[in-house]
Design a protein around this nucleic acid. Structure first.
Lengths: 239, 239
DNA sequence: TAGTGGTCTAGACCACTCG
DNA sequence: GAGTGGTCTAGACCACTAT
């Protein structure tokens, strides 16, 4: 539909894509409003919106709820097997990282968390919710669920730092093994709110479980990435 | 919006989700038509469509172009680092796999392919396009790009079989190292057509490059998965 | 307060699928 | 030929953002 541009939205898509990819628009730049675009292309907002959502799926543009549409910056290259923590990884790619603590609380494990930690539902866990920014843009919502018995007093630490670092320095735990899953899904409401996108928009969910030296499961982590912000890369030497 | 169900579409979403997850509807079952749903919920097709797209993003339902909406089967668990080939993997999960050859041709490398293979644009490559089914549903479009000089006469083989197997048996090549990238993006038109989805819908793209024993790059592969059909799982022993 | 995207109405025609 | 989703029109009101 868009390469041949048989439909109207296909033509608009090609036109907008060219404007963006030709370098005419710079990364992070705001697009004209939906109403302006409708007028420019002599069509309705619904048609324009279909086009924008499609380009959003490609990862070419992204939206901030009720603020507008913007040209996506380059994707961050992320290796979930790598030891380096978030801030290091972003710095290595010459971008600026920030982390903000959204919530830290202790409660009983329920549902998916209890299942991921392979514990029953009466076990206490610490939940740490953080929001991570790249170049000022919120792109990653992270929820860590720690077995409370293994991490006394961790809630008094500076939780904007690397948790892996705290595990090591304060408790002597090293991550000896981990398992992660990549799941394309829609943003749950609390995630959507934090990332400033609409509930149900596509996100890339990464569910990870970490084991310490002695093989015991320590914590699990749920990452929700803006899908245009990231690219996962893994290199494997023989197997 | 949907957990609190403050909007109309939020309420419809919750209602449909419950119907599906409660087991009232079975995997693969067809939903009522958009017009029927509009009538059932006393609203318009556009509102219903927004709800369906949102549930589609979650991976709960999927669509077949112009045929209708269906309840998604369970996700296949896929480990890109594993040696086992597609049919084996699907069989291990008690599902039925099929592969169909869409196209096989020889041409000059261009654009992303030339870049992935780290060759210049005048080098000949074989392109093999295949469509893979799980339980009769097309879920994976695969494009393999082989350095032609390394694979004489491969186009005369049975290309619905495992390519890795052919590499080994006919040429003695083993995959010693590979690199893969996971990229959430939109379906290009030829992929959309094959997978029976609309161009620009979200897909999970996996770009892989394979090296043989002596370290030489053999081929690259582009996989496009229906995003509701798969879940990537990787386990890492210490690193 | 002006402007934005989010949501919604009430239709319409078209391309395609299926029986 | 009946029914489906795909596309499109021409509006409207609302919640929220930015200034």
């Amino acid at each position: 539909m868009s390469t041949q541009a048989s439909t109207q939205s296909g033509k608009i898509k090609v036109s907008l894509r060219q404007q963006i990819q030709s370098g005419f628009m710079t990364q992070g730049q705001k697009l004209p409003s939906e109403r302006e675009l409708s007028a420019l292309f002599s069509t309705t907002r619904i048609t324009i919106k279909d086009v924008l959502v499609s380009l959003e799926n490609e990862g070419l543009i992204y939206r901030e709820e009720r603020r507008g549409w913007y040209v996506s910056p380059e994707r961050i290259c992320y290796n979930p097997l790598s030891r380096s923590h978030f801030h290091q990884m972003i710095r290595d790619q010459h971008r600026i990282a920030e982390t903000c603590l959204l919530d830290a609380r202790t409660e009983m494990a329920i549902g998916e968390v209890a299942q991921a930690l392979a514990i029953d539902q009466m076990t206490q866990i610490h939940i740490i919710e953080r929001l991570r920014y790249i170049d000022g843009r919120p792109v990653l919502f992270v929820e860590n669920c720690l077995k409370a018995s293994l991490f006394p007093h961790i809630m008094m630490e500076n939780l904007t730092l690397s948790l892996t670092g705290i595990y090591r320095q304060k408790y002597g735990y090293e991550t000896s093994r981990s398992c992660f899953e990549v799941i394309p899904t829609g943003a749950p409401s609390h995630v959507a709110k934090a990332l400033n996108l609409a509930e149900g928009q596509p996100v890339m969910k990464i569910r990870r479980t970490n084991y310490k030296q002695d093989g015991e499961l320590m914590d699990c982590e749920f990452e929700y990435w803006r899908p245009d912000a990231v690219l996962i890369r893994i290199e494997s030497d023989s197997h």
